[in-house]
Structures are given as C-alpha cells and as structure tokens.
Design a binder for these strands. Structure first.
Length: 655
RNA sequence: GCGCCCGUAGCUCAGCUGGAUAGAGCGACGGCCUCCGGAGCCGUAGGUCACAGGUUCGAAUCCUGUCGGGCGCACCA
C-alpha cells in the first residue's frame, strides 16, 4: 500500500535472498529477521537467523552461520559478509553505492505532501480524522494541554507526510459543566452582565483561570449554588436565554485565546466542532433513538441511577469487575453527559449519522467551525473518515472505551475497530516546580503534583512560552549583541518553539511527565536547540564553501564513483542512521509512539555533531575525502530537515 | 476490590517483534576554540536493570507472583 523506503526495500531484498538460501542449504523455511549491527566495524545489517535455526537444526549457531555465509551470493549492494559473535550473519553494504542512491532519491514519496495527499489513498477514501487539543473553553491552556496539542500536531504531520489525507478537528465542549461554571462565576459570583464580560481586557483566559477555581470553592457545601449550576447547564444545552448567551461569549473568547496560544507553537486546525451544534442539530437525539432502539440504553426505574438513561456495561468483558457496571448517558434532569454527546460525535465522524452540520468560517483563514444554522453552502467536506484518532490523555481511557462500546452496540463493529484512542500520560508538576509556584502539597516528600484546572493548579502554556522565549532571547543577545530587536525576537521565538515542542514529543507516551522548570529551561543536550544547532552548523559549512568559491554539494554520480574505503566508520554510521528515517517515521505513526521520531532526530544530530568535530570539510585538501564528507552531511541534512518538519521544530538561520 | 501505566547510573529517561561488552542527557570531575562559532566535542566516575520464581542455548525485554508509586472505575470532562 504505502511505498517502502530505499533502505526498507534493500532490507527486504536481502531477507528474501537469505530466506531462499536457507531453504536451499538446509531445506527449512525461515523468515530472517533483520537488525542493525551495533557497531560499524562488525557490519551494517545483521541476521540472527543462525541463532534461531540452531534449535531446529540441532547444531551450533556459529557453525550454521559459517555454512550459510560460505555459499551465499548477495546482490551487488553487499560488499561482503561475515560471521560475528554468537552466530550473527553480518552484511557490509557498498558504501558509495548506497550513499549515492540516498542522495539521488527523495526521502519520502514525493508524489504526496502536506497540500497534496497521495492520490491513491484519497481515492480509496482513506481519510483519517485526528481530534486533538479539546480544551474546555472556560480557562487558559496549561502545559498538560500543550502535550496533547503537540502530540496531535506531530501525528498529523507524520500521517500527511506518509501520504494520508488528514482532517484536524478540535472539539469545543461548549455545553458542559466546566463552561457552566464560568458562566455562574461571572453572573452569580461576580454579578457581571454580558457587556461587562465582553469588555474585560485580555488575557481573558487568565481571568477565567482564576475565576474557575474560585467558583469551585464557592459551590462547596451549598446546594442552592449547585442548583444554579444545574440551571445554567440546562440553559447551555437548550441554547436559550441570557446564560446561554453568556456561555457563547465566554466560549468564543476563550477559544480565540486557545487558538492564539497554539498558533505560537505553529499548531492549527481544519475544523472546530462545537458540542452545542451536536445538540442543536439533534445529532444526539438521533443517536439516542438508535441506542434506545437497539436496546443499548435503558431507563432506570429505581436505584441510585433512578431516572437516568444508562448504558449497561456488565456484559462487556472489558468492564468486568466494575463496582458500578452502568454508565449514565442522560442524567435524571434530562441533560446529556459527555459520553452521550461523544457517541453522537463519533458516529458523525464516520458518516454514520446520516446528517451533517452547517459550517461557517472562523476568524482566521482556512479554519471552519460548525454551526446549527446559516452555514455557508460552499464549504469543504468534513467528516466521513475512514479512521478516527482521538488524542486524549490516558485518564480518559475508560470513557473512550465506553464510546467504542456504544458504536459496537449499534452494530458498527468495524468503525469501533477503527476508533483509536491515542492515549498519553498526563503532565504533572515536579516537586520543585510545585514549590516554586507556591503549591505546597502538604509537607509530604518528593511527590509530584497533579495539575488541576478546577483547583487552579498548573503552569499556563503562555506563561511557559514567555519564560522560555525570554531565556533564549538572553542567550541570543549574548552571542549576537548587534542584532536588532525584531530579529532577536524572531530567533528567540523559533528556538522556543523548538525547545517546547521537542520537550513534549521526546517523552514516551506511557510515561507521566513531571514538569520541571530547570529541565525545561536548560537547552543543552537532548533538546530542540541541540537539533537546531546541528542544522545551523551544517548551513554554515555550505555558506563557507560558497564564499570560498567551492561547490556546496556533490551529485549522486560523483558519490557513486568514490572509493568505498574513504568512508570511515563514523561517517558511514551517520549515513546508515539517516537512511532509516522513513522507516522510523512509518513505525512511529503506526504505533503512535511519536517519541521515536524525536529519538531518531537526536541520534542523527548527535552523530553529526561528533563527525563535525572530527572531520573538517572546508580545509580538507584531498578532494575525494572532502566529497565523502560532503555526501555524508548531505544525507544527514535531508533526513534531519524532514524530521524537524514533522516535529515542527523550526530551522533558524543562526543561533 | 478491579483495570491501565510506571519501577534501569545521584536526577530525568532510551533500550525495537528475547540475542553480540546495558545506553543517552542533566549533575560531578578532567580535557578540547588564532573559530566550518563551547547551545558543541572527547574522556573519567557512577548500574545485583524493584524483588522472587518460571520459559529459553540466551531475559532489562516474555509469563506468574510479591512489593513500591501514579492514574482510572461520577448524574465532571
């Protein structure tokens, strides 16, 4: 389906070759595994086939490997074969030939790009809908939301690079309890009217951040106040009256702020899906009827869920052992829970609802939002995804499972199968960060502290961005005191984007990030700026070559003709690592482990920095040697540029 | 109680479908700029891979159990 990269093709070819050879020599069927040899002096690719065959053949692995190596004739791309270690069959590749091919061919299939997804996949209707960010529109974005948005964005970039048509949706929960709290906060706690709230200065999301935790305290132990919240929730759902109007205003202002924050990190969307429209256009009503008809939900006559419509989960093995095996879909007061709305939303994403939203343009170019009425007729097609990936933190796994069960019980098992929850662990605050911010979580130990919008605990995304930018600006000033303010800001911004985005992607998704200021504000070692610096160095070499009137690049033909012996192991190690980039990207997007992309970039940059120190290009008088080094750097550059593009790490001119 | 995740160097973490002497970064210590700019490179110190069994020619990696820690099991999302 998707095209294999040059290197993947090579691996496959050699594996097939070996497979046939094994069958010829031993009469056994065996699919050889291909690995990278740990060090270049041992070889490039390693086949542990003999180790695996030892059991079947009842012979020593090394013996088997030697026998295999003896009569083995690989294609010309292989320069020699050797037996190493316990019985690895190692392959040395023709360095000049492979390097030439890497220079000649594009890294990824160039028939596809961001703007132009692979025609084939588009024709096949392989559109993937990625939902990410999804911040409740009642407070400022914090660094936990940043992890979500960055992961979502990197996933989108990767999928698009591979060739998939992708639609990015950002779900706006504008009929939920959290927004209701903000409405109550302004109206009942602050006693403010619509005009007053509209007139509040920016940063509006910061104002709401404080208000939100205040409202939480204001409710405590007061049933009358909580009743106000319920009324407000009703008003939001029915989209009627002054409270609904207040909700609209707050949501719009907050969303606008969230989009601005994300834009600072170069993160954008295709469509804002508003929950209000899911209700307003009776999407939920429609889905609810289907659920009722299929018997997937039932009205509770008594018990603690009396008066609620619940979805029984007890028959599903996944939910065995739950204390309460039922999930409320419609509350006893008639309002709908998040899961209920999300089932309707998920159905729409797959085109299973048989109806569509109206669409209007958001303020900025290229971005649309859903509407209940008055839509623009000429809008792009939304929804109708073949596959849906929801980027939502791991704490919501239970809810995401329920949504899938909902699809299944409506007879959409295939769609349930293609509903993917991209789960990642949360961001908490390190002990030091918590202390620094004055959230002393008791006196207890070194524990990290969970962020909470409700309690007002967290680091706001914009604050962090500001801090990172300021710190980097200082570093740039130190190095380039003569720069004007605008270029300074520009550089600092690029470096900050790189630093923050990389920070969020490099962690494996299954691990909680304990956010620490010291770590986030240190730009040495495994960081975005480390990658950026390698590109700056690479650029500088080319500029210097140009200044000296020398060629800045070598062509494939020249490289192919170079003596293979000229490639020292460290240079070759970098070339070989770079060659694997497409495979890494493919594996990262398939497994949703995007840190692989970050690791690959680090690996390449590290090898480059090391090579840079050891092998000078500019003052190398041996022309062939210089060309080998230039070729190495060219291959590196192509790969790292592609990776940085996927990571959304900008490449600065200098730093 | 049940479910998911984590437990590898002082700290933060990599270690792919089991395979070649367990790797980085930060911090510590010691080197390397009359420059392709030290946001870098090289080196030293630092590890009974939580613990106990099991599977295997081979286990940080797979299985079982135990002990720590985090999260979830709302008419919040």
């Amino acid at each position: 389906m998707l095209k294999l990269s040059l290197f993947q093709e090579l691996e496959k070819e050699l594996a097939t070759h070996l497979r046939q050879h094994i069958e010829a020599v031993f009469g056994v069927e065996h699919d050889p595994v291909v690995q990278m040899s740990p060090r270049r002096e041992l070889g490039d690719l390693a086949f542990p086939a003999a180790l695996h065959l030892a059991k079947v053949l009842r012979r020593k692995p090394r013996e088997i490997a030697t026998e295999l190596a003896d009569g083995l004739r690989f294609p010309d791309s292989v320069s020699r074969v050797s037996v190493e270690g316990a019985g690895f069959l190692n392959v040395f590749l023709d360095r000049s030939a492979l390097a030439a091919r890497l220079i000649e061919l594009p890294l990824f299939d160039e028939t596809s790009s961001d703007e132009k997804p692979s025609e084939e996949l588009r024709r096949l209707g392989e559109k993937i809908i990625v939902e990410h960010t999804n911040i409740n529109p009642n407070k400022a974005a914090h660094i936990g939301h940043l992890r979500n948005a960055v992961l979502g964005d990197v996933l989108v970039r990767s999928l698009r690079r591979i060739g998939y048509p992708v639609e990015i949706q950002n779900y706006i929960d504008d009929t939920g309890v959290q927004l209701a709290d903000a409405v109550v906060g302004f109206i009942d706690l602050r006693g403010m009217g619509l005009d007053e709230v509209a007139a509040l200065p920016e940063p509006f999301d910061y104002t709401c951040w404080d208000l939100y935790s205040e409202v939480g305290r204001w409710y405590e132990g007061d049933d009358e106040r909580k009743a106000v919240r319920r009324e407000t929730l009703h008003a939001l759902e029915s989209d009627n009256g002054p409270r609904a109007e207040m909700g609209r205003l707050i949501a719009r202002r907050i969303v606008s702020r969230h989009l601005a924050t994300m834009k600072r990190l170069d993160i954008g969307y295709d469509l804002l899906t508003r929950e209000r429209d899911i209700l307003g256009l009776d999407f939920f009503e429609n889905a609810f009827e289907k659920l009722k008809a299929s018997g997937a939900v039932r009205l509770e006559a008594d018990g603690k869920n009396k008066g609620c419509w619940v979805m029984p989960l007890s028959q599903s093995a996944e939910f065995a052992g739950l204390e309460d095996p039922d999930k409320v879909i419609v509350r006893s007061d008639g309002t709908v829970t998040y899961v209920g709305k999300d089932i309707a939303y998920q159905l729409w994403k797959f085109g299973l609802l048989g109806r569509d939203f109206d669409y209007v343009r958001w303020e900025e170019e290229g971005l649309w939002e859903t509407a209940s009425t008055g839509g623009i007729p000429s809008h792009p097609e939304f929804g109708q995804g073949k596959k849906v990936i929801n980027v939502i933190d791991a704490r919501q796994s239970y809810l995401q499972k329920i949504v899938r069960v909902g699809l299944e019980s409506l007879g959409h098992a295939d769609e349930a199968e293609r509903s993917v929850h991209f789960a990642y662990e949360m961001v908490s605050l390190s002990r030091a960060a918590a202390e620094h911010l004055g959230y002393l979580s008791g006196e207890d130990e070194n524990k990290s502290l969970e962020m909470s919008g409700r309690k007002g605990i967290g680091v706001k995304a914009d604050d962090l961005l500001d801090q990172v930018e300021a710190k980097l600006r200082e570093m740039v000033v130190e190095r380039y005191p003569e720069l004007d303010a605008e270029s300074l800001d520009d550089l600092a911004r690029q470096l900050a984007i790189g630093a923050l985005r990389f920070f969020m992607v490099k962690a494996t998704t299954t691990r909680v990030i304990a956010f620490d200021f010291q770590e986030a504000l240190n730009f040495k070692g495994e960081t975005g700026p480390y990658l950026q610096y390698s590109m700056v160095r690479e650029r500088k070499i080319r500029r210097k070559l140009e200044d000296a009137g020398m060629a800045t690049e070598v062509d494939a033909a020249t490289v192919a003709g170079l003596d293979a012996e000229l490639w020292s192991d460290d240079l070759w190690d970098l070339v070989l690592a770079a060659a694997q980039t497409p495979a890494v990207v493919a594996s990262a997007s398939k497994s949703l482990e995007l840190s692989l992309i970050a690791r690959q970039a680090l690996d390449l940059a590290g090898k480059f920095h090391s090579v840079y120190q050891r092998h000078r290009i500019l003052d190398e008088t041996n022309e062939s040697l210089r060309q080998v080094r230039m070729a190495t750097v060219q291959v590196f550059r192509k790969s790292l540029l592609a990776l940085l593009d996927l990571l959304g790490v900008p490449v600065p001119e200098k730093m």
